[in-house]
Each structure stands twice: as structure tokens, then as C-alpha cells.
Design a protein around this nucleic acid. Structure first.
Lengths: 258, 258
DNA sequence: CAAATAGTGTCTCTGAGACAGTATTGG
DNA sequence: CCAATACTGTCTCAGAGACACTATTTG
């Protein structure tokens, strides 16, 4: 405990503490064309200029971490109101940022399929990437690959415990849309009949004055490849007490071929 | 984006970033006399001198957050090897520390009933508090009350998903010890017969080459109030694939009295 | 018409919970 | 003996999964 206290704030006596920059980084997940996507930005300046990265930036002293996440989300991507935004981890390994000591607080954001923003517009500095590609093939700046992986793990967990699934869909939605959220994040197939039942019928254990989904009476248009048009539902209040779908415990058996 | 870059590190061009102190704070949970306890330290200096607080301290630039947590745990409490230590949140509200801008990263640590350390030795600056008391009655420094609450919530969640329960007990343990961990964290009673079955018998879904618990052949001494001496078990390898006990979904019904 | 998707009805069986009853200790 | 704790056996039933079948669209 040596070191003379230099320009430390008043009233603090000994052993100056080291100084860090604090950032927030945001993993924004959404469903696009039935697949899970993550929103990334291309960095315009060093370090890692030209590399894809999670949107984020420096926390300011007069704002909370949550506010910083909301602000950076808006400034860097134009996303105003994600349906879910929650912190899931902090990352502070030495050297994770070549500039200086940076500790980042990572956020998971979820939004429904965005109308304006589109994947594939390569000229833009912001685009959606399929998460499978982003995790397996794409080089990411800093330790953002690890942060992205952690975010996906966390999202998969939270599907079972919260109403997170409903954050991926719009105000009204077909049950098949919701089902694809679970299937993408859990990498598992779900029987549509059983999925429907678990959402539309309340059981003794999931007793609740409210329901998980309520029919709107309207129907979406059928898919271009035919099929019956699906009924549109709205999310109900039962999610807060008891999420309806539990993650399959038994992984799908692959039949042995002789 | 105004502001002249002042004394910023070399190679970084514009808009200096604000500086923070980064700390780690550790919520250490253990079972003591059948009840869940948290280890707190009494602060020796301002701010909050004399107030009970979570152990913790400043992160150094050359160590990871996990290393900082391990170091502070050792320096402040003498705990060398917790059976569980994992980060669960970051807290950075403006003004949470009156000295300066501090962002803290919170850790959950779990250890078996410590031999040396004892609750109730009031003269000491370190003691175990029953979590119920600490959450409801005890004034804590900074925002440590909120951090403690979050830690307990997280621990309760992780019981269902990981092998966290085994971190509360020693190398060998009676099943009733393990059961009390679940009952304390979930605030629910569990039928001992059903609890035993879920740990000692593997089912088709929990298929595993290994078991959850293996008998050691030894027995503990009976309690001072009588009772059959319990068999001692050792934790097996099946926890990593599929934790054995699921949190009750249906809260205990309180029978209506007419 | 066929293909594709939406939606209904029904069977099975795991495993969680309830609970009766036995075993072994201290007092 | 009784109280207390450990342990065994058995019944029931909710609910997850499998799956056959019907309904409504596009092409």
C-alpha cells in the first residue's frame, strides 16, 4: 500500500485506486426471415477499424448503466424501444482493449423484426447477421465473440424463465412465429400441436386469472407457398407468473442406423 | 462531441472518456446451523465507517475481474477456496459511492460451513449473518442491500440449473443437509422421500453414466435430539449434465378455513 | 389436384408429489 | 417407553411428447 495519494477526490485518504474506462456493449437479437439474427456495426476507427463489433460506447458519470445502454443503442443503431433490455455480464480482462483499461458491461436487447432496418445492405455500417454465421465465421472486435456467445446462452436460459420470447414478436403474432423463437434459441424442434396446447390452455399448475395468449380474431396472410392463414394472438398477462414452455430435458435421439 | 482531448493516452484522438474506479463485491453464502447465512464485514473507515458491508475492493489493471474477486475474498475474509465463485451483475448508478464514480462487479461465492469462522463473535469485523436478518433488518453500506437481494435471487435460480447446491456442503454430506439448502433458498418445504428418490435413482430422462450422489458407507453421528444416523454421500458427476431437483412450480396451497 | 401450413383430438408414460409405514438413534 | 430423524414402498395424476386426423390456403 505505498504510493502517495495524488489528485484524488477530497476526503479520501490513502492508496489511490486505479482508473478505468467503463463502456456498455449491446447484443441485439431479433428474428428475421425465421432465423435468429444479431445486429452488428462496422467500426469506423481504430482499434479494429473495419471490423464488425457490438454496438456500444462509454458510460457517462451522470447516467446509470441501463441509461447508457439505451443511449448507445439509439445513437449507434437507431433502435429506440427494444422490447427487452437487460444487463447480463461484465468483462474486464487486462488488455481486452489495446487503448487503455476498459471494463465493459454487456446488455442483451431483443426486438421484433424491424421494419426499416434490413439485413444484407452491405454498404451500411449497421446490419443484421445470422447468429450462426456471426458465432462461427465472422471475426469480431475486442472480446465481442465471447460476449455474443454468452448473450445467446443467457437468452436461451431466459426463454424458460421469463416472457423473453414475446419480445421477439410484434404486438400480434402467429403461434408459429413464437415457436420459431424457441426452436432457434434452443436448437430443438417442437411439436406444433403440443406447443399450441401449452400456450392456449391453462392447467392446474399454471392457474392464472390471465392467459398466455389471447386470440385477436384476425388472421395473417398465408405464406407465399400456401397453407392455411394463421390466427393472430396477443400476449397475455400469465407470462409474469409462470412461463408456459419448458426446455426439453431429453435431447432428440438420433436413430441408430444398421 | 465537443471537448478538447485533455490528458488522454497516446493514439486516441477525440472526446476523452470519463474515468471510473472499478471494484468487486462478493456475496458469500454458506449454511450454518441449518440456516442460510451471508458473510459481511464491518467497515473500518468512511464512507459508511462502522456499517456492515459486503467484502470487496478495487480491481487492479493487471488482473481479471475473477482474480480480483478471489484476491479480495482472501484479503478481506481469509476465505481461500470457495466451492463456487461467479459474477452475477454490475452496479454503476451515479452517486452509489459518495467518493467518486465507482462501478462495481458483484460476485456470488458459496462455501460449506466454515470450521474456523463462526457467527456471533460480535467483536470481530467479520461475521456470518442469517440472510433473513441481513435482508430485512440490517443497514448495509452503499447499494449492498440491493446487491445482496440480487445474489440470493440468482442463487435460487442456479440451484435448478447447475450443481450449485453441492457447493454448500462438504466433501461428504447427509441428504438432509443438501435438502436444507434447497429449502432455505426456495423458501419451500420438500418431501424427504421424494427428494431422496430424485437424487438416488436415475430416470430415463436423467440418463447418465454417473450418479448424482454415491454412498460412502459411512454414517454421521445422530443429532443431539435423537434420530437415526444418516448415511453420508459424495457428489457424483451427473450434476453437470442434468441437475436433479426442479423448483416447485405450484406454491404451497394454504387450506381455506371456514 | 398436390403441397404447405394451421389447427384438433387422443393416447401413453414419465416423474413429481402425497403419504403410509419401517428402522435406528437419544433421552 | 416416546420423540426425532432416516429410509422404503406405493399410489395418483398432471403434463410432456407422439402422432393421426381435419381445415384452409397457394399454385
Amino acid at each position: 500500500m505505498s504510493g502517495s495519494g495524488g489528485s484524488v477526490p477530497k476526503g479520501y485518504d490513502s492508496s489511490a485506486y486505479p482508473s478505468f474506462a467503463v463502456t456498455v456493449d449491446i447484443v441485439i437479437l431479433t428474428m428475421w426471415e425465421g432465423r435468429l439474427h444479431v445486429l452488428l456495426v462496422r467500426r469506423g476507427r481504430d482499434p479494429y477499424a473495419g471490423t464488425w463489433a457490438l454496438p456500444g460506447g462509454f458510460k457517462r458519470p451522470d447516467e446509470t448503466l441501463d441509461d447508457a445502454a439505451r443511449r448507445e443503442l439509439r445513437e449507434e443503431t437507431g433502435v429506440i424501444a427494444p422490447k427487452h433490455l437487460a444487463q447480463f455480464g461484465a468483462y474486464g480482462d487486462p488488455g481486452r482493449d489495446p487503448r487503455t483499461n476498459v471494463v465493459t458491461v454487456a446488455y442483451l436487447a431483443v426486438m421484433p423484426d424491424p421494419g426499416g432496418l434490413r439485413a444484407g445492405t452491405d454498404a451500411a455500417a449497421v446490419r443484421l447477421w445470422p447468429v450462426a454465421d456471426a458465432v462461427e465465421n465472422l471475426p469480431l472486435a475486442f472480446d465481442h465473440h465471447r460476449i455474443l456467445s454468452d448473450a445467446i446462452d443467457r437468452a436461451a436460459e431466459q426463454l424458460e424463465q421469463t416472457d423473453l420470447a414475446t419480445a421477439f414478436v410484434g404486438e400480434t403474432f402467429a403461434l408459429s412465429e413464437l415457436q420459431s423463437v424457441y426452436e432457434e434459441l434452443w436448437q430443438a424442434e417442437i411439436d406444433p400441436a403440443n406447443f399450441r396446447r401449452s400456450l392456449t390452455t391453462l392447467t392446474p399448475t399454471t392457474a392464472s386469472p390471465d392467459s398466455y395468449v389471447t386470440p385477436t380474431g384476425k388472421r395473417a396472410k398465408a405464406s407465399p407457398r400456401g397453407g392455411r392463414p394463421p390466427e393472430l394472438f396477443r400476449a397475455g398477462g400469465a407470462w409474469s407468473t409462470q412461463p408456459p414452455v419448458r426446455r426439453p430435458r431429453r435431447p432428440k435421439e438420433r436413430p441408430d442406423e444398421a
